[in-house]
Nucleic acid binder design. Structure first.
Lengths: 162, 162
DNA sequence: CATGAAAAGTCTAAAGG
DNA sequence: CCTTTAGACTTTTCATG
C-alpha cells in the first residue's frame, strides 16, 4: 500500500470543474472570480468556494508573480552539482538550510544518487558565478567537490493536470 | 491585453516603491491593489500604474497559481541528465522542443558543459520514471546516455530583489 | 454542494497638481 | 510622477433549494 504520504491527502481526482479552474489559474492567477466561474460554467459564489477548497486541500499551494532575473540585472544562470564530504553526510539538512538562505539561489535539489545537491543560481556575470562557487561552496567545510554548468535555456512549466 | 512593445532592457532600476510591490506580489500575486498601495505608501491608482509598468517592462512576467504535483498523484520527482549523440548536436533545439511537450516534464535546462540537458520530471512512482526514461529518452535516436537521480527535496524560491 | 441577491469592497479612468 | 474622486464592477456572505 502507498505509505509515502507526507500528510493526509485526498485522493487526487479533480473533477472536470476543478480542472478547468486550476488550469486557468496556472495560466493567470489573477483571473477574476466571475470570469473563472463563467469558464467553469458555475456561479461566482460556487467558484469562490471551489477555489478555496483547492487551496485548503493543498492542490493550489500559492499565487505568485514571476519575476525575470534578467530584468533585475541577473542575466546569467548556472546549475552547480555539489558533492558533500562523506564525513558531513549527516549534516546535509544543515547545508541545505544554509544554501536556501543565499539570495543567489533560485532552486535547490537534494538528490539521491552520485551527486548530493544541485543548485540553480542567478548571477550578474561569470565573475559572480565564480565568486559564488569559491566563497560559498569550495570554501565550505562540508563540500567535497562541485561542477558548474551554464544554463543556455531554461523552460519552467506548470505541472500538467491529468 | 498584451501590447507587443519591444522591451528595452534597463538593468535593475527598481526604486524602493517598485521593490515593495514586486516583493509582495512574489509572496501573493492576488494581493488587492488597495493593500499593495498601502504597503507601498502610495495611492491605489498610482500603484496600478506601477504594476502595469512592471509588467510592461518585463520585470514581472506573469501571475500564476502553484500546484502541488503530489496532490495530483505525482508524488515522485526526478532529475535526468541527458547527453546527446555527437551526430545529433545540431538538432538539440528540436529535441528540446520535443521534451517540453511531454506532460511529465516540469523543467528543462539546456546546458553548456559535459551534459547537454537536465530534465526535471514529476511521476506517480518509480515505474513511471523508468517508463519515461526508457520510452522517451533511451529509445530516442538523439540520446547517447542518461543518468537519473531521485529528488528527495526541492526548494524553489522566487528571485531575490537586490 | 450549488445558487441568487445584496452588501461590502475594489478597480480604474479622468482631471488636476 | 503622484493624488483625489466617483461610478462601474467584483467579491463575498448567507439564507435557501
Amino acid at each position: 500500500m502507498a505509505t509515502n504520504n507526507v500528510r493526509v491527502r485526498e485522493p487526487w481526482p479533480l473533477d472536470e470543474t476543478d480542472t478547468v479552474i486550476v488550469r486557468q489559474l496556472q495560466r493567470d492567477a489573477r483571473t477574476p472570480n466571475n470570469q473563472l466561474a463563467e469558464l467553469a460554467g458555475i456561479a461566482p459564489s460556487t467558484c469562490l468556494a471551489r477555489v478555496r477548497s483547492l487551496v485548503d486541500r493543498g492542490v493550489i499551494t500559492g499565487f505568485e508573480a514571476r519575476v525575470d532575473p534578467a530584468a533585475l540585472g541577473l542575466g546569467l544562470q548556472a546549475l552547480i552539482s555539489v558533492s558533500v564530504r562523506s564525513g558531513a553526510r549527516h549534516r546535509m539538512a544543515e547545508f541545505s538550510a544554509e544554501m536556501r538562505r543565499m539570495p543567489d539561489v533560485l532552486q535547490l535539489f537534494f538528490l539521491g544518487g552520485s551527486e548530493d545537491f544541485i543548485l540553480h543560481i542567478a548571477a550578474r556575470d561569470s565573475a559572480h558565478v565564480r565568486d559564488f562557487v569559491l566563497e560559498h561552496l569550495s570554501a565550505h567545510p562540508f563540500v567535497a567537490s562541485t561542477r558548474t554548468s551554464m544554463v543556455f535555456e531554461h523552460v519552467d512549466r506548470a505541472v500538467t493536470i491529468p
